[in-house]
Design a protein around this nucleic acid. Structure first.
Length: 596
RNA sequence: GGGGGCGUGGUGAAGUCUGGAGUUCACGCCGGCCUGUCAAGCCGGAGGUCGCGGGUUCAAAUCCCGUCGCUCCCGCCA
């Protein structure tokens, strides 16, 4: 690569470079001025190396030599040498060598810093985002961007190797009010009209299948105008791909290839294939969630049979009304009475009416406030159902099924989820239902309405229990992405819309262009989208995806660095044919009066 | 839309419960000394609207009300 201002990367120098003359350019990560000799830890994109500036070598004027400060941008020409005596620093990759400066020039001084650029120092995230360009100088952040770049490159390698064509789809598209809120962009050429930013390239990639592309992929930027979380941003990146004449197995196999390659590239670990698979039903029954963390056991046990004829009124009542009794063996928690009561109130916070705890004793009995209401046989069966050994804590919830699974699934995570990220548990969740009921009791698509059912006739007869050809990829309890075999038959698509309560006119108005396209020899096709931010964050062992996004938004959608989002001139709005509503302007005025 | 946590010199924290002089610690910054350090060391110094507004009180970083910002979570995210 052409590089006229420097000959080497600071972090690349090794003992084998000793004796050579180098020119480095980078930043002052640390300065240690001994009055005579000055040590400078010099950092560039490749890492850090120690530079020795000795006044006897006259590498610079006395003013420059004493004047350099943290984060000054400097250039040094000098000789690489092995560090004398026992001065090697085993904690640095470049610690065997140092650069003896013969010439040092200050390329660009730096203001005093708003915070120290040091991986060992915690700084409030808002401050980091305000000065993100400084935050990104930290080696840990550089490392995150590197991991991200590497992940994307490996994804491209796998896709290109498999004959996929990278095709870009538009980001100014029609709004389809379904699913997440759309990010809207007003149109100047058609005042009062709006584009939406894509929540995913879904329909465009299906169009590409109809176009005969057969194998498409894209590193796609997607937008969802919903509230943020540690694993959700307004805009995010996905590896989106789709294949014609493809089924579920083709997609899952490709996903394994991608996951294996990315994990190898970032973590240096070889994953075992095939990945475990759970049906959606199994995942819900055993883990209380559709994205189980299977790095630990603590599976949910169904206790309905144990309490089939119980005299314990609370459980009997729940069972009589169609509910269920289930529990988890949380292992040797060693909690006091008040600690256990704390777990109980946590369960109530999560929506349970109550929680029964039991502790297995040395003699095999179960200690619990409700033990006196249970028969010998019930207690024995319970211990067996949980495989309880002395010291184990059993947590039992009785309620309607959804509540029980919700509460136990969450408690399971809170009691058992491992802290670290050393272990990586990928799995596929398959056989999702086609529909779920919303709060009004209407059917809504669990995945999206273009997902193919396994059996069309069964779907018509009993939509509530219909299985779809949809699947998710899960890593350590996080949903990395989802995909499905799509509907390629317009008649099936019409039936799905019908069950969803979307009238022909509605479907035609919103998706007519797409339904029309389906009528021109659409190949069977299937695909997937992997959330790149989440994948890289988990592989890097990070708690939130902002760490792997160079310029993320805060939870309220702001960028503290650039000040977005911001108000715009009335003149701009007028051109667009839109106006800010009076009540919003009133809020602005009130805030200004407050001196905000 | 709702719940929890946080906001104190440039940075991070303690102080807040139980009101009593802007008090403390570490880092950074500025100056001095110092030629082998590597989170250099020693000496000295500067630096504050305790997020903001209101209230209670003789007295508020501390108690009360409101508000803003950041964050975690629920809702939401087909």
């Amino acid at each position: 690569m052409a590089e006229t201002m420097k000959t080497h990367g600071a972090g690349t120098l090794r003992a084998t470079d000793a004796g050579g003359e180098v020119t480095l350019a980078g930043w002052v990560a640390k300065r240690r001025d001994h009055g005579g000799v000055v040590f400078v830890d010099m950092r560039d994109a490749t890492g850090i190396v120690q530079v020795v500036l000795n006044p006897e070598d006259a590498p610079a004027s006395e003013a420059d030599l004493r004047g350099i400060r943290s984060e000054y941008c400097i250039r040094v020409t000098g000789t690489v040498r092995l560090r004398p005596g026992d001065m090697a620093n085993p904690d640095m990759p470049t610690g065997d060598v140092e650069v003896v400066g013969q010439a040092m020039e200050i390329l660009s001084p730096s203001n005093p810093l708003p915070f120290q650029i040091d991986d060992r120092i915690d700084v409030e995230e808002a401050k980091r985002l305000q000065y993100r360009y400084l935050d990104l100088r930290r080696p840990a952040m550089t490392e995150n961007l590197l991991a991200r770049s590497r992940a994307i490159r490996v994804m491209r390698d796998v896709m290109e190797g498999a004959g996929f064509l990278e095709v870009e789809t538009p980001t100014l598209i029609a709004s389809t009010p379904e699913g997440a809120r759309d990010m809207l962009v007003p149109s100047r050429l058609r005042p009062g009209n709006f584009y939406a930013l894509p929540q995913s390239p879904q329909l465009f990639k299906q169009l590409l299948m109809i176009s005969g592309i057969e194998r498409y992929y894209q590193i796609a930027r997607c937008y969802r105008d919903e509230d943020m979380r540690s694993d959700r941003q307004l805009e995010f990146a996905q590896l989106d791909f789709e294949g014609s004449f493809w089924g579920q197995e083709d997609v899952l196999e490709t996903l394994e290839e991608i996951s294996v390659a990315v994990t190898k590239a970032i973590r240096g670990v070889d994953l075992e294939r095939p990945f475990p698979r759970l049906t959606w039903h199994e995942a819900m029954e055993r883990y209380g969630t559709d994205k189980p963390d299977i790095r630990f056991g603590m599976e949910i046990a169904n206790l309905d049979a144990v309490f089939g004829e119980t005299g314990f009124k609370a459980f009997a009542g729940v069972l009589a009304s169609g509910g269920t009794v289930r529990g988890i063996n949380a292992g040797p928690l060693g909690l006091s009475r008040s600690g256990l009561d704390g777990v109980s109130s946590r369960a109530q916070e999560l929506g349970a009416k109550g929680l029964v705890w039991m502790v297995a004793e040395e003699d095999g009995s179960l200690r619990s406030p409700v033990a006196k209401f249970l028969s010998e046989a019930e207690l024995a069966d319970l211990g067996a159902a949980f495989g309880a050994v002395a010291g184990d804590t059993l947590l039992i919830v009785a309620d309607e099924k959804k509540t029980v699974l919700d509460v136990l699934g969450q408690l399971r995570l809170e009691m058992g989820q491992p802290e670290g990220h050393d272990e990586l548990a990928y799995l596929f969740v398959v056989d999702f239902p086609v529909f779920e009921r919303n709060e009004d009791g209407d059917f809504v698509a669990l995945h999206h309405p273009f997902t193919s059912p396994v059996d069309v006739r069964k779907m018509r007869e009993d939509p509530g229990h219909a299985i779809s050809k949809a699947y998710d990829l899960v890593l350590n309890g996080s949903e990395l992405g989802s995909g499905s075999v799509r509907i390629h038959d317009p008649a099936v698509q019409a039936q799905v819309f019908e069950i969803l309560g979307i009238s022909d006119e509605d479907a035609d108005r919103r998706f007519g262009w797409f339904l029309e396209a389906l009528r021109y020899g659409t190949p069977p096709h299937a695909g997937f989208a992997i959330g790149i931010d989440r994948l890289v964050a988990i592989l890097q062992g990070l708690p939130n995806i902002r760490e792997v996004i160079p310029f993320p938004k805060t939870q309220t959608g702001a960028d503290p660095l650039t000040g977005s989002p911001s108000r715009v001139d009335d003149a701009q709005l007028r051109e667009l044919g839109v106006d800010v509503r009076p009540e919003v302007k009133a809020e602005w005025a009130a805030a200004e009066a407050e001196g905000d």
